[in-house]
Structure formats: structure tokens, C-alpha cells
């Protein structure tokens, strides 16, 4: 075990897998010599050379389009999109091509790759360095979507994603790139995709969240506990296909649920989670499910802490739900 932050843990996973599997290549803007604008790929260019850690022209469509070609050939590309706000020029390649290759070819052309991209707010990045577009990819059949909240999970989930037979969008919560620290297992360490983590036990309210908001959720849970409300906090880790069994088991126990995410509320993943709970645990519910989310506005610069579903907004939602 080694103490690491998220950036170090992801770097460790990339290095481990590049040593283990020579088909793994990294490509993207500034990923090579400078090691990425967040330094996530630091040192890899020197270690593996410019055939495997590739600084590309400034074009997300070109990065993902060529990465698809590499995957079809048999490499295991790990393209980086510098900010998930910049992923949209590649949306056609991801939605129309990457997600559909296996299906449209009857399995003849699987297209495994991991698209790594920083996500979320909290770094004073304004509209274009802060958004959380996960739902736009979950809605596309054929993509898996992952968002770790701890360094150990970042490593374990990334190694699983790089070995997965399907394309994975790997969202890295940039707000906690360096703030989240923890013990990370050395060497080969995987966390299975599709398994949530119950981070904190509690019998009164279930709180489902992921990414950077996990820490706000835990803070809110502690404050709720001071008010006598015990909150069970679930870190989803894999956003799609999500771990429905863990969510339903918890809601059947508590009868109450709050979902917290940074993305805008309407048609966000929280809406889908609440629908699934209604379908699978309706008769166990003691209160209306609640969502604490970003607003249906563009992500603001100056007022970002008002926009984000931080602890001060989560606490009243927990108490209201518990006392309904």
C-alpha cells in the first residue's frame, strides 16, 4: 500500500497496464512530453516513448476517431479528452461509431477502449471546464461509464476498464484530483465494474452519489447524524450499468432516498435512479425520493458553489426526507 492522491493512483494504473500489456497506447492533447495538463500521464512518455504516449493535433474528433481505428486493429487505446466539456467534437465518433461497433457488426468488430476525461466543477473553470455530461453517454446503448471517488478505486476501476471488452468512459473528478488521498494497493489491483460501495452505513436515509460529491455527502451525513439521522452513503463508482442491487437493498432497509449529483437535475442520472427505485422498491418507500443536483442552467463561474450540490444543500434534503 502506498499513500497516493487521485492523479498518482491513475498514473500508477496507466503505468502498470502499459508494462503488462504492450497493446495499451495513450493519445491526446498534451499527454506526452508535458504529461497532461493535470500531469496524470507524467513520466509515461519518457518511459514508453512516443509510439505509445502520443501528443496529437488539437482535435477531439480526430483523437477518438483514430483511437477507434487503433482498437479495431487490436490495440487497447486509452485516449484522453483534456476536459469532458471538450468531448463534444468527438460525440459523433463516440455515439455513432464506438458505442455501436460491436452491435452493428454482430460481434465481428469489438471496439474496447477507455476514454479518460476530467469531469465536474469546483476548480473555478466556468462553463467549459466544469460540466458533468455523464447522462449524455449513459443514454447511448453500448457504453460503460465509470467515475471513481477515491485513489484506490481510481486505480482499481481504471485497470478493470482497460481490460474490459467494451468501451468505457472514465470520468475523473478533477476537483479531488489532488485533494482526495488514501492508501492504494501496490501492483495489480482491480475493482470490478458495476459494483457500488457502501461507504457509510445507516438505517434512516439512503444517499446515492459518486465522484467529488461523495465527500460532500459524507460531510452532510455527519451533520445529519448530529441531528439523529443515520445516513447510508452509497458511492456508485460505476455509473452504468449501475449496481441496482446495492441501491435497492439499501432503500428497502431505509425506505428513504436522496440522490446527489453535479449534473443538471432534469434527465440526469438521478432521475433514472429514482425511477428504478420506484419500479423495484415502491412499497418500501416512506418518503418521496429527493434529488440534490446542479441546476438546469449552464455551469456558472462566480456562483459555482451555489450551483454545486454541496453539503449545505444536502443536509436539509436528508433531514426533510428523514422526517417526512
Amino acid at each position: 500500500m502506498t499513500q497516493m492522491n487521485m492523479v498518482q493512483a491513475i498514473n500508477d494504473a496507466l503505468r502498470f497496464e502499459m508494462k503488462r500489456d504492450d497493446r495499451v497506447v495513450i493519445l491526446g492533447e498534451d499527454v506526452g512530453k508535458v504529461g497532461g495538463v493535470f500531469r496524470v500521464t507524467a513520466g509515461l512518455y519518457d518511459e514508453f516513448g512516443d509510439d505509445r504516449v502520443i501528443d496529437t493535433p488539437l482535435s477531439e474528433g480526430g483523437i477518438i476517431g483514430t483511437a477507434i481505428g487503433m482498437a479495431l486493429y487490436g490495440l487497447r487505446p486509452v485516449p484522453e479528452i483534456q476536459f469532458s466539456d471538450f468531448i463534444f467534437p468527438a460525440y459523433d465518433q463516440i455515439v455513432s461509431e464506438l458505442a455501436k461497433y460491436r452491435y452493428r457488426s454482430g460481434g465481428e468488430f469489438p471496439c474496447p477502449m477507455v476514454i479518460r476525461t476530467p469531469v465536474g466543477g469546483g476548480i473555478r473553470g466556468g462553463h467549459y471546464h466544469s460540466q458533468s455530461p455523464e447522462a449524455q453517454f449513459i443514454h447511448v446503448a453500448g457504453l460503460k461509464v465509470v467515475c471513481p471517488a477515491t485513489p484506490a478505486d481510481a486505480k482499481g476501476l481504471l485497470l478493470s476498464a482497460m481490460r474490459d471488452p467494451d468501451p468505457v468512459l472514465f470520468f475523473e473528478p478533477k476537483r479531488i484530483y489532488r485533494a482526495a488521498k488514501g492508501e492504494v494497493p501496490d501492483g495489480d489491483y482491480t475493482v470490478p465494474l458495476g459494483k457500488a460501495n457502501v461507504v457509510r452505513g445507516g438505517e434512516h436515509v439512503t444517499l446515492v452519489t459518486w465522484g467529488a460529491m461523495l465527500y460532500e455527502a459524507l460531510d452532510a451525513a455527519n451533520k445529519a447524524a448530529a441531528e439523529g439521522v443515520q445516513v447510508e452513503v452509497i458511492d456508485l463508482r460505476t455509473l452504468w450499468p449501475l449496481d441496482i442491487d446495492t441501491i435497492v437493498a439499501s432503500v428497502k432497509k431505509t425506505g428513504r432516498v436522496v440522490v446527489v449529483h453535479e449534473a443538471p437535475r432534469s434527465c440526469g442520472l438521478g432521475g433514472e435512479i429514482v425511477s428504478l427505485i420506484n419500479e423495484k422498491a415502491f412499497l418500501h418507500l416512506e418518503a418521496p425520493p429527493k434529488r440534490v443536483c446542479g441546476f438546469d442552467t449552464p455551469f456558472p463561474y462566480t456562483l459555482e458553489n451555489e450551483y454545486l450540490p454541496l453539503s449545505h444543500r444536502i443536509v436539509p434534503a436528508l433531514l426533510e426526507t428523514a422526517r417526512f
Binding site: 476517431g65 483514430t66 479495431l72 486493429y73 487490436g74
Partner: peptide, 13 residues
Amino acid sequence: TQITQAVGFAWAA
């Protein structure tokens, strides 16, 4: 869309 894919494929080769 196939154009960049063909480039990536040849590049990988």
C-alpha cells in the same frame, strides 16, 4: 467517420 478510423487503424499497424 470511417476516414479517421482508417487512419487510426493504419497508424496502429
